[in-house]
Simulated scan of single mutants.
Amino acid sequence: MGKLRPLAKRLEIDVLLDQIFRLTDEGKTSVSPELQPLLIAESSRSRGTVHSHLLKTRHYHAAENLSNNPDITIRRADKAVMFVLIPSEQYVSKLDSIVHYCFKSSREFLDCVNSAPAEGVMASLDVESLFTNIPVLRTIDYICDHVYRSSPLPLLKIEEIHLHELLKICTQEAVFCWSCGNLYQQIDGRYMGSPFGVVFANSFMGSGWDEVFNRFARPLLYGRYVDDVFVRTTDSEERERLLCLLQEVSSLQLTTEEATDGVLPFLEVLLTQNADGSTHTAVYTKPTDQLVCA
Rank of each mutant, 00 (worst) to 15 (best):
Y148M: 08
R149D: 15
S150H: 14
S151P: 00
P152R: 09
L153Q: 15
L153Y: 14
K157T: 11
I158L: 15
E160Y: 00
E160A: 07
H162P: 06
H162S: 14
L163Q: 01
L163F: 10
L163Y: 07
H164R: 15
H164L: 12
L166H: 08
L167N: 03
K168E: 12
I169M: 13
C170G: 13
C170F: 13
Q172S: 07
E173V: 03
S179D: 13
C180W: 08
G181Q: 01
N182M: 11
L183I: 01
Q185A: 10
Q185R: 15
Q186F: 05
I187C: 11
D188P: 05
G189F: 00
G189I: 06
R190M: 13
R190Q: 15
Y191W: 07
M192L: 09
M192D: 05
G193P: 04
G193K: 09
G193C: 10
S194D: 14
S194Y: 00
P195C: 13
G197I: 06
V199W: 03
A201M: 07
N202P: 02
S207R: 10
G208C: 14
G208L: 10
G208Q: 09
D210W: 10
V212T: 06
N214S: 11
R215E: 11
R215G: 08
R218I: 13
R218G: 07
R224Q: 04
R224A: 06
V226R: 05
V226S: 09
V226C: 11
D227A: 10
D228N: 15
F230W: 04
R232N: 11
R232S: 02
T233R: 13
T234P: 06
D235I: 10
D235R: 04
S236A: 14
S236I: 15
R239E: 02
R239V: 02
R239W: 00
L243W: 01
L245W: 09
L246N: 01
Q247A: 09
E248K: 00
V249L: 03
V249P: 01
V249E: 06
S251W: 04
S251L: 10
L252R: 07
L254H: 01
L254V: 04
L254M: 14
T255L: 08
T256C: 13
T256A: 13
T256D: 08
E258D: 11
E258S: 14
E258L: 13
E258F: 14
A259V: 06
A259P: 02
A259G: 10
T260Q: 14
V263P: 09
L264W: 04
L264G: 03
F266K: 02
F266V: 14
F266C: 00
L267K: 02
L267H: 03
E268G: 08
E268W: 02
E268R: 12
E268I: 03
E268Y: 02
L270E: 09
L271P: 07
L271D: 00
T272N: 12
T272F: 06
T272M: 08
Q273Y: 05
N274G: 01
N274E: 15
N274F: 01
D276K: 01
D276G: 06
G277Y: 04
